[in-house]
């Protein structure tokens, strides 16, 4: 009965730790940790490894922000969220930012009052089918059973796609990616649909990935990016420009290997110098140390390194850069200048 003390002590601890006011940056600094919302497990984007450390593409964004604000990429508390819980967790201040391959849509931005700070992965919804079915186009899927992960934009896109093509289907809504895989592999559904990157990541874990094909149709635009609450523009700027710093770094050839050298010795490219804080006062303007971007890049690498290390062609997931190449190479990754 005396365990009410748990409650008492926890309440005190919770109140002390909480106090999420408008200034998210101050909270993060006071706490010494960044609370970052991620998925419950999607290999390549965010998943804990065998040692319980979170790894992945979205995780790198969290770590970069932590390195920029706190100087320590490990000062991140990863909060696993489901499709349902992610927005409330962010709205209620339980997390400071959400990096959970979340699609930037009009209603999420305006109705749910969130601020998408940018796009870290340009995605689109695709279909995966077993090759033995002999399907080569999504329009041949009339009457098929389709596994979808619930709580995402994919259910709505799917309904729209099949309705506009006037074909029928049986939706099977599934809570987690792992369960979707189980159903799909057992043949309980003919098709698995989610973001094309997620499909590739899922296929990578299969026993025989080559027996499954991704259909050519991409039925939606899914710009995935980190988001923060409406109303705290300073914090939004920090997350936005950390992401931009990673993208600019790749464009300018700054990598985790050479960033320390460049920062110490300076370069003859003024934009690199501004980025790394050796020239100008960009850090001060954003309310951080001068070397904020250097810390972020040193911790996780530039955008290209993060991509290659987590989901690129050298990893089991094997995604090509495609739309996510730098604008100079025909992609859409385009950071505003650091000036």
């Amino acid at each position: 009965m005396k365990k009410t003390v748990f409650l008492g002590a926890l309440t005190i601890a919770g109140l002390a730790a909480g106090a999420a006011a408008a200034a998210t940056l101050d909270d993060v600094k006071a706490r010494g940790k960044l609370n970052c919302g991620v998925t419950t497990g999607l290999v390549g984007f965010a998943a804990p490894n065998a040692n319980g450390e979170w790894e992945g593409f979205d995780v790198a964004v969290c770590r970069a922000v932590a390195a920029a604000t706190l100087g320590d990429p490990t000062a991140v508390e990863f909060v696993p969220t489901t499709g349902k819980t992610r927005f409330t967790a962010l709205a209620s201040g339980e997390i400071d930012m959400l990096a959970r391959n979340t699609t930037w849509t009009f209603s999420r931005d305006n109705d749910l009052k969130f601020e998408f700070v940018g796009v870290n992965y340009y995605d689109g919804q695709g279909f995966m089918v077993p090759k033995e079915l002999g399907v080569s186009s999504a329009k041949e899927l009339d009457g098929a059973t389709v596994c979808i992960q619930t709580g995402t934009t994919t259910e709505l896109n799917l309904a729209d796609f099949f309705r506009s093509n006037n074909i029928s289907y049986e939706p099977v809504p599934i809570e987690t990616n792992a369960e979707a895989q189980q159903q799909y592999l057992a043949g309980a559904c003919d098709v698995y649909t989610t973001d094309a990157s997620g499909l590739a990541a899922t296929r990578a874990t299969f026993e025989d990935p080559s027996a499954h094909a991704l259909l050519p149709e991409i039925i939606s635009k899914e710009p995935l990016g980190p988001l923060v609450r409406h109303g705290d523009n300073e914090w939004g700027d920090i997350v936005r420009w950390t992401l931009n710093a990673m993208i600019t770094a790749e464009e300018l050839g700054v990598t985790s290997a050479n960033v320390a050298d460049m920062a110490a010795n300076g370069t003859d490219n003024p934009e690199i110098n501004r980025l790394l804080g050796t020239e100008g006062t960009l850090g001060e303007m954003i309310g951080l140390e001068a070397d904020w971007a250097k810390n972020a890049i040193m911790a996780v690498g530039n955008y290209g390194e993060v991509f290659e290390g987590n989901i690129g062609e050298s990893t089991p997931i094997g995604l090509a850069r495609g739309l996510n190449a730098q604008w100079t190479e025909g992609g859409l990754m385009y950071s505003p200048p650091f000036r």
């Binding site: 497990g41 990616n177 369960e179 299969f206």
Partner: peptide, 26 residues
């Protein structure tokens, strides 16, 4: 586990089954 906490069932449904190493062990 349904509200994304990693209890025993949540651990299994989340990190373990979604890992490349143990995907498919039910």
């Amino acid at each position: 586990s349904i509200i994304s906490m990693f209890d025993l069932v949540g651990m299994i449904r989340g990190p373990i089954l979604s890992s490349t190493d143990w995907n498919g062990v039910y």
